[in-house]
Amino acid sequence: MSIHFPETNWFKAPTGGERVWIGLALAWCVVLTLAMPYWHFKGKQNSTGESYRVAPADFMARTEKFVGTNKVGELKGVPVVQPAPGGDAYLVAMMWKFYPVLKLKKDQTYRLHVSSLDLQHGFSLQPMNMNFQILPGYDHVLTITPTISGEYSLICNEFCGFGHHTMASKILVED
């Protein structure tokens, strides 16, 4: 029994059902393993983790410059900014807001840079339910293509202090 000492020559190859199951399980694990590289090359949704070190103040300066050149309006006091299709966009997270509000075009691709000025934050796009981590000191580049137009919520889903549950913004996508 499992609390008792096994016979002397306990080493033997699996047989019968056990053997069949180990084979099946191993085959399934191979499927699981291959699925990821497959999707990396063929799939449209990948987190490549492209990122660069950046000092928070530098990132803020880049964001301000981006807002200065691309601002198209304001929403609840927050600038609404429309990046050039194919171009760079900046989004900064801080306790407890995102800055600025982005306005994107459907089916255009953007290099969206996200970083934090203080704590770790979350990039959680709803109701699309796409989620990425935002770290201070890292310029996390999401090469993103909105495929469906509409008005999306952006919420923080990494705990960032007592205001965490109020940290939200918008991302607007036009046809």
């Binding site: 399934w28 949704q45 990948n46 796009l125 699309m128 796409m130 293509t145 909105p146 495929t147």
Partner: peptide
Amino acid sequence: AIYYFANWKALADVWHVR
């Protein structure tokens, strides 16, 4: 297998990102 592939299907419906 059902749960796993259903999740790939759900993933395929979101925005494209790299």
